[in-house]
Design a binder for these strands. Sequence first.
DNA 1: CTTGGCACTCCGAGATCACGAGTGCCAACC
DNA 2: GGTTGGCACTCGTGATCTCGGAGTGCCAAG
Lengths: 340, 340
Amino acid sequence: MLDDRKLDVLRAIVEDYVHTQEPVGSKSLVERHSLGVSPATVRNDMATLEEEGFITQPHTSAGRIPTDKGYRLFVDKLTSIKPLSAAEKRAIATFLEGAVDLDDVVHRSVRLLAQLTQQVAIVQYPTLARSTVRHVEVVAIGANRLLVVLITSSGRVEQRVVELTQDLDADVIADLRARLNTTVVGQSLADAANRVTALPQMFHRDDRAVVAQIIAAFAEAIVDNRTDEKVAIGGTANLVRFGDDFDRSIKPLLEALEEHVVLLKLLGEATSASLVTVRIGHEVPLETLARTSVVATGYGPEQEPLATLGVVGPTRMDYPGSMAAVTAVARYVSQMLSDA
Amino acid sequence: MLDDRKLDVLRAIVEDYVHTQEPVGSKSLVERHSLGVSPATVRNDMATLEEEGFITQPHTSAGRIPTDKGYRLFVDKLTSIKPLSAAEKRAIATFLEGAVDLDDVVHRSVRLLAQLTQQVAIVQYPTLARSTVRHVEVVAIGANRLLVVLITSSGRVEQRVVELTQDLDADVIADLRARLNTTVVGQSLADAANRVTALPQMFHRDDRAVVAQIIAAFAEAIVDNRTDEKVAIGGTANLVRFGDDFDRSIKPLLEALEEHVVLLKLLGEATSASLVTVRIGHEVPLETLARTSVVATGYGPEQEPLATLGVVGPTRMDYPGSMAAVTAVARYVSQMLSDA
DNA sequence: CTTGGCACTCCGAGATCACGAGTGCCAACC
DNA sequence: GGTTGGCACTCGTGATCTCGGAGTGCCAAG
């Protein structure tokens, strides 16, 4: 049903439409792309492509534009991720190089991604769930207040203030700090939360209550933080560039961008660090964003990605370019994090 | 030159225009507001108001709209901050009540403000400059890596990783931790940075180099953080509601919102916690935002505000309402912070 | 100083129209 | 059978025009 030439035609339509943002007709198509056939032939092909649901025409006697299904086929079969130029690679490297801490890495990445793709970029902070404990610190900051600081292998630092019902004994704290660290350093967060429950038993009867409180707070902090997944956003100014019929989608998109929970749904699960996932139009898990596409990928260790990053834009976007930028940035960020 | 009735006319024009977003003519003015005079009289008043530069007409034979100067007069002389309703106050209280930490307070405030005013809200994090040190912690997290954690009176926690050229001695660290705390707890950050420079002298000659490195990092962290002033943003989705001629300003505004440095300029210095400052159109320190106004105020202790919060919107905005919302939220936030 | 009257301006909404890009279909061709 | 050129037809777009109405400025009278 769909021979090679028809696929060529589809590819040409997508490319032209992405470029010009205008419905593309048979004549201008053969002019721009050397398909080796006449407009009439192209028209026939277009007719079948339309029957199959890959393209559609806004009005009778207008050119064709790709449907979501058309973009899907284009992304799956008709294009490969075009590698970035050497200059672009260098730019990425130097831009991310100067980052001093995790926050900085994330912010730089999101800016970079927004600039490369001229779209809205989203970078999720490395989840705590998959990282390991690098260090735990317990610090008295008042008569019966103390601070628990958790440093993870991904460089994320979480702190939590604990109010105690009893006063503190410095020796017990020091002891606890030592035991905590020997118990959990190097463990995954999930394991750490488990292992730690046995700790109170190791203390003198009188101290167990206090220790248990602290441990409980610590465990709770881990669990809480697993869901508290932060994201950084950049390039919202690019939204206005999209123009034309996408205007209607701007408001829902801006709203989604403020709801981090919704945003994370948009990005989706980080399945693998090397695969880039593309959601097109209706495939996006939000009805209001039917004219929107998401290109995302995981980053971090190959098999166990720490989090997701990606870009959001109109369905009519430069998929190959976005996919290239997203994968490239993800690769560099992964590298930065494993170095640190 | 400007008798009371003319001021009444100006007030009426501003109110109507803010409400309808359309140039207001003499006839509809007398219909809506009971001014007790005829349209012809109003026309004469309008003529003088236009001569004085308070209003202008987009085209000949169109109604009048206020100029920046007109809004300025309106804000300064013709309106008072209208107190919020009891219901609104209750809503604010309950909305902010549940906040668990500083981050939460800031995020809730920005959302609240955006919702109350239907505009873009900005909340600056409490600056470190004016707060005092509550606690300092020094923690070894590796052979020659350590973490300095700084907890301020405003509840902000800053951490910093220091790489050392020498290995660490646990006793020295403990000693340093103790001395650091006795030296700086309760001090303002500026004082703390000063006092701390004398510390290395108190250590054994062999350790001075390491200690000096740590102290340097600490001092640098303070100084850095003084300028590293974070902000939270909310309500960007409201931008699209503004509609009409403000559309042109959306892009520059979105760009400004991403540049936190620029944003802080927009908000301006927090002069007093009880005064609300209004910048209208050209008064805003960015040429590209000539159609934009900013309503902001400081929050925190009356005489020494910790930071600024406010809203940004089109010059044609509900000034009394925005001013009321901004001051109310600021008051509640100040209260929350002093409780903590 | 206020007011009613009046001539004038000019924006904006419709209406009309011509243009042209694009389509579908058909008959001819390779 | 797929391909091609021709041709009639559709229909959205932009240009032009008209016209009503809201609004103004000015003037003379109250």
